[in-house]
């Protein structure tokens, strides 16, 4: 629920409110991670490392529902809708373009909410391993979650063998989004 700019506010103020949006969204990903069966059996260190490398990607999946690829608009939870052009003033044009493309591809798969949630769990445990200590434990958790996702999707669409592979193909897209855009700058006012 992000109160991004009514026209009257400066782009700096827009930037601040946009930056503020991320804080609650990140906290929700942390809570989501703790609810993933098996996540809290990982070491605390590895939980933190996975969250640090995977949260941006999970957010990208979560934000997809805000994007309307046909209309090229973004509707925040408070109901405010913004065209891509108006949001370009935030200087996040390239990220927004990438988000529209990604949400179009993911949206076309027509996942149910529970399938999307399980996919987000897979996204998180598939994140970069560079800081992970017990790689085996993370790989085992990832394997379990992928198996659960596959059986959920194939049980609902027994005659569609393409959906699951298409879904897994979104993982590299998310990695690219992360590598290209997680260094975007946010600004916070300190009074």
């Amino acid at each position: 629920s992000c109160p991004v700019a009514p026209a009257s506010r400066s782009s700096q103020e827009v930037w601040e409110s946009f930056s503020q949006c991320f804080t609650p969204a990140v906290k929700e990903v942390v809570e989501f991670a703790k609810s993933i069966p098996g996540f809290q059996t990982l070491s605390q260190h590895d939980q933190v490392m996975l969250l640090k490398s995977g949260t941006f990607q999970v957010l990208m999946v979560r934000f997809c529902s805000l994007f309307d690829p046909k209309e090229r608009t973004v509707t925040f939870l408070n109901g405010q809708t913004y065209s891509l052009a108006s949001l370009r003033a935030l200087g996040m044009g390239s990220l927004l373009d990438a988000m529209f493309d990604f949400s179009e591809k993911l949206g076309s798969l027509g996942l149910e909410p529970d399938e999307m949630a399980l996919f987000m769990a897979v996204v998180l445990v598939s994140a970069d391993r560079s800081g992970i200590v017990e790689v085996g434990a993370v790989e085992q958790l990832q394997e379990n979650l992928i198996r659960a996702l596959r059986s959920l999707i194939t049980s609902r669409r027994p005659d569609d063998s393409t959906l699951f592979p298409k879904l897994l193909l979104r993982l590299p897209d998310l990695r690219t989004l992360n590598n290209q855009h997680s260094d975007k700058l946010l600004a916070f006012r300190i009074d």
Binding site: T23, K52, S182
Partner: peptide, 25 residues
């Protein structure tokens, strides 16, 4: 004058996660 703290999205995310786990220790 208003001062600003500027950080990358990745650093902001890391900061929140570190805070959360520190608080819940």
């Amino acid at each position: 004058p208003k001062t600003h703290r500027v950080m990358t999205l990745a650093d902001h995310i890391s900061h929140i996660i570190t805070q959360d786990f520190a608080r819940n220790q």
